[in-house]
Design a protein around this nucleic acid. Structure first.
Lengths: 209, 209
DNA sequence: TTAAATTAAACAAGCGTTTAATTAATTTTT
DNA sequence: AAAAATTAATTAAACGCTTGTTTAATTTAA
């Protein structure tokens, strides 16, 4: 699905509001006002409020799947290097797309069926396949240990990143980073998150229990 | 704050609905119907819908803080054993209080100020203090390595548990556990989660980078 | 005989969506 | 190239419905 400039403009403002106030907490009038358009244009361009949300999911998840498929084809790297590249790309994505990740974190709790749920499941499968093939490759080469619960390891990676980004205001208070600017704080947690996940991953993949 | 039987009955039904459909997606009429009471009784007992949510948070977070303060006083255990006990208690709580944890996961994204945000911050501080003192103790005894980012390690533990519980329907599909009964599936993820977090923790605390 | 609990009804406000009219842009015809 | 015809975009207003909360009357309990 291709979106016009006008549609993207609306989707971007809607995404921000959905992230801040939740889907049900955001009114179509809110969106129209922030996007500088007439109320009726949302229905005109997307059909309904729900389909606008679906459009946001379509757009962002489409971007993500594209991103992932590129990584697997870099053959000149070791398994751990590929894994680390995956983390770099993933963390960068999470930090850059914070509003969407907030929506995702909230909607995947309540949205268990329908178009959106299908998109989420697809994306999860894509992540799963990518990581699974990387780890199997590393195990064959003897770089990684044998007994790894890949599904739970992914839960840890995604859960860590999600939790940090969606509750970063608490993290900020708990660690006394309130004097930092928003930009500097974002830079800081991106770096910390990247190193932390890599550490967890390396420890998990090579640790002998 | 103490709550009457009637209040607890309403809070329990409200908690379930908030978890399933979100705070804004749940109407006071929904709650009244499920609780088998008149619409006006919610305002009568709690003042407002928002204060009902706050009551749920008061109640659950009060329980959690009680739970945590008990653990620190068990002196006959090693640092790693205390840490493992903490995980046992935490995972058990997460599994048993799934509805509340879904609410918590969603509300802490949007709720950054007000009474609820304060309660969440308090709870996080309690967790932080508990884990911090356990880890410092283990480091003194030489059981744990020196350079540990406790705040991020907690983000990983909480994030992993949260993500698994709030998106367990996806986990179920991805790992072909659909033929299992709900009860059996819950038992399974509790056990898996417990072992997984302990493994991550042990690897992180003792791994030499 | 007070106080507490419960009820049905009503309240104003906000919701998502639709309508019908108007303006702007594009295409077709002259 | 100008005029006419057609399509697309935009608007203000209204639609019916649901929302959280309050009221005033009634039943139950102390």
């Amino acid at each position: 699905m291709e979106y016009s400039e006008k549609q993207l403009q609306i989707m971007k403002k809607a995404e921000k509001l959905f992230a801040e106030k939740g889907y049900n907490g955001t009114s179509v009038r809110d969106i129209a006002e922030k996007a500088g358009i007439n109320l009726a244009m949302v229905s005109y361009y997307f059909g309904s409020k729900e389909k606008l949300l679906e459009a946001v999911f379509d757009y962002r998840i489409g971007m993500t799947k594209q991103l992932l498929s590129d990584i697997l084809h870099k053959t000149n790297l070791s398994s751990l290097e590929k894994m680390n590249l995956l983390i770099d790309v993933y963390v960068k994505k999470i930090i850059e797309q914070q509003p969407f990740n907030k929506i995702l974190a909230r909607e995947q709790v309540v949205n268990t069926t329908g178009h959106t749920a299908n998109l989420i499941l697809q994306m999860k499968r894509t992540y799963m396949d990518t990581v699974l093939s990387l780890i199997r490759e590393g195990q064959k080469k003897g770089e990684f240990q044998k007994h790894i619960d890949v599904s739970l390891l992914m839960t840890t990676i995604i859960g860590t990143a999600n939790h940090l980004v969606t509750t970063k205001h608490y993290y900020r208070q708990l660690n006394n980073y309130e004097e930092l600017s928003d930009e500097a704080f974002n830079k800081l947690i991106e770096k910390k998150l990247r190193n932390h996940i890599k550490f967890i991953l390396k420890a998990s993949l090579t640790y002998e229990s």
